[in-house]
Structure formats: structure tokens, C-alpha cells
């Protein structure tokens, strides 16, 4: 059962990723990315990280995808992907580059890692467990993250402002 669930979700993730890169239309790409993010959230659930699964849905599907769809609606890209491509020979190199990277990664994954392969089932990835770490040992990076978000917000406001 767990195997079947994993393979169905993994297939969804891979197919939506392929759809994202192969469709020319940017809005289709954004919608495929939503499917991809949703299936990865399900993967987090199968890995016992409930909190992250929901954070993924809320932050990615909720916040980031709204930004993407909004930007696509404002800019209406799509003309860029059609018409003659002066750099087509270079772009054809992307397929061997991606395949080479995949083969390399598989080579690394396939190597013996020396332990850690067994499913040890930790104490669970619920809110309590993460918060216990986040607000004690990793409190400083956590606060740094909030500063980063604030800086990003101020920067975006400055960038998007109309020149006066």
C-alpha cells in the first residue's frame, strides 16, 4: 500500500515537472508547478513530516503561486517562447546537461552511504517536535529568517515603487 502510494505520488511529481518544462505557456507551467508542489506535500506526509506538508501547501501553493500567477497575468509572457530562436543549438545542449546531472546524482545516490538506509521512524515531524528545536537551539537562525523576510519585503516595495 505504501509502495503504491509512493509510486503514484512520485509519478505525479515527475509528470507535472515534465509538463512544467515542456509546455511553452507560462501559465500552464505555473499550474503544473501547483500539482508538483501538492504531490511533494503528500510525499512529506508519507515521510511523517505533517507540519512541513501543510507549510508546503500554505506557503508554496498559497503564497508563492499567487505571486507567480499574478506576475504572469501582469506581464503576459508567452511571445518569448515562440518565433525563431537564435540560440537553438545551445539550448539543445540542455538535454544532455540535464541527463548528465541526473546520471551523476544517481551515481552518488547508488553509492554505499554506510548506514542510515533503514527506516528508523523518528519521534515524528509534528509541530511540537519542530518547534522544540526551532525555538531553542535554532532560535537565532529563525530570527535571522524573519529579518531576511523583512529585508525582502522592503526591497520589493522599493523595486515596485513608481519613480517619483
Amino acid at each position: 500500500m505504501a509502495y503504491a502510494a509512493f509510486f503514484v505520488v512520485a509519478a505525479m511529481a515527475v509528470v507535472s515537472a515534465l509538463g512544467l518544462v515542456l509546455r511553452r505557456n507560462a501559465i500552464h507551467g505555473a499550474l503544473f508547478l501547483i500539482v508538483n508542489l501538492g504531490s511533494i506535500a503528500v510525499l512529506y506526509q508519507t515521510l511523517g513530516a505533517e507540519f512541513l506538508a501543510w507549510a508546503q501547501v500554505i506557503v508554496y501553493a498559497g503564497a508563492i503561486m499567487v505571486l507567480f500567477v499574478f506576475a504572469i497575468m501582469v506581464l503576459i509572457p508567452g511571445k518569448e517562447e515562440t518565433g525563431p530562436d537564435p540560440r537553438r543549438p545551445w539550448r539543445l545542449l540542455a538535454l544532455p546537461a540535464g541527463a548528465l546531472l541526473f546520471v551523476q546524482l544517481i551515481f552518488v545516490v547508488g553509492r554505499d552511504r554506510g548506514g542510515g538506509g533503514a527506516d528508523v521512524s523518528p519521534a515524528g515531524g509534528g509541530v511540537e517536535a519542530i518547534a522544540g528545536l526551532l525555538f531553542t537551539r535554532y532560535l537565532f537562525p529563525f530570527e535571522l529568517t524573519s529579518v531576511l523576510l523583512l529585508a525582502a519585503m522592503v526591497g520589493v516595495l522599493l523595486l515596485a515603487r513608481r519613480r517619483v
Partner: peptide
């Protein structure tokens, strides 16, 4: 699975023509 998705992402980054 992660390696496959990462490689597909790299392919997408290299082939796309618009910044989004």
C-alpha cells in the same frame, strides 16, 4: 525521485526563454 526532479528543473532553467 529528488535527483530526477532536480535534473528536470535544470533542463527547464536551461531551455526557458522568458525569465518567469
Amino acid at each position: 525521485l529528488a535527483a530526477l526532479v532536480f535534473a528536470i528543473g535544470l533542463f527547464g532553467v536551461l531551455t526557458r526563454r522568458n525569465a518567469i
